[in-house]
């Protein structure tokens, strides 16, 4: 594969809601083996930018490219099949299915086994086993038969991450993975993201508010403000720039 072609790229990516431009001509490329944190104040367009990349929203203008191929017109499922994986900020699970079934559905999607109508899913030992491994990895093994809707918030966040890991994507998109988690659960999640980061073939995008988290994980920070990309670079460099201080970091930065 040509190393100069980024795994994921957006060119002039724009979405308008009526007169409001939520994401404004964002051009950015992401290379394998990097973790990029996307920061910005509330309403800066971070989650909207994610939705445009993973296909939950359709762009008004601009392009999304996966390995140089234009996917702007493709639905979310097709982008997932091409290697994008997305975890959601507001927990977004299958509430009446068990924890195990939730993970198995993701494993099954990855294996492309969804269209077999006449085999029993319990006969797919390989998928069952893979789901079991992920269950252990996110430390939810004791909740295996609990329905997802009945889990405490922290465990739902873990399951959300489990679904993303089960997809084995090339690009991991985390949207505030530690939001609403108790302090003792956060290190667990950071550890999982840290493990993923060590794999040089994976690209990680992380929307995060906590600056200590960003600083410990990210090799690069991009800053969105009013839907536009206002800064892009190494953490120290970005945090020092005056435009970022004014736009967003301000007192947060001083505190951190």
């Amino acid at each position: 594969m040509n190393a100069t072609v980024p795994v994921l790229e957006t060119q002039d990516l724009t979405i308008r809601f009526g007169g409001h431009v939520a994401v404004n001509k964002v051009t950015c490329a992401f290379q394998p083996g990097t973790l990029t944190a996307i920061v910005g104040p509330n309403g800066a367009g971070k989650t909207t930018y994610f939705n445009l990349i993973s296909g939950q929203l359709a762009a008004s203008a601009g392009q999304v490219l996966i390995r140089g191929k234009d996917v702007t017109r493709l639905p979310a499922s097709a982008r997932t099949q091409r290697g994008l994986g997305r975890a959601f900020q507001l927990t977004n699970l299958f509430p009446n299915l068990t924890v195990f079934e939730n993970i198995r559905l993701a494993v099954q999607a990855r294996a492309g086994a969804g269209l077999s109508l006449f085999t029993l899913w319990t006969d797919r030992r390989d998928l069952m086993h893979a789901a079991g491994v992920i269950l252990e990895r996110v430390r939810l093994a004791d909740k295996r038969e609990t329905v997802a809707g009945a889990l405490p918030h922290g465990d739902q966040r873990k399951l959300e991450i489990a679904l993303l890991i089960a997809l084995e994507p090339d690009v991991f998109m985390f949207d505030e993975p530690t939001a609403g988690m108790s302090m003792d659960e956060v290190p667990n999640v950071l550890e999982i993201i840290g493990e993923l980061k060590r794999d040089a073939s994976k690209t990680i995008l992380l929307v995060e508010h906590k600056l200590d988290v960003v600083r410990s994980l990210a090799g690069r920070i991009i800053v969105l403000h009013n839907g536009a990309l206002v800064a892009d670079g190494e953490p120290a460099e970005v945090m020092a720039s005056s435009i970022v201080r004014e736009a967003y970091l301000g007192q947060d930065f001083e505190d951190a």
Partner: peptide, 23 residues
Amino acid sequence: NSPFGSVLQAIRENEFRAEALGY
């Protein structure tokens, strides 16, 4: 009770997420 059937239930539960998983 097939893999297909479990996707149908996933769609019933959360269509949006089923699509995001690649179905």
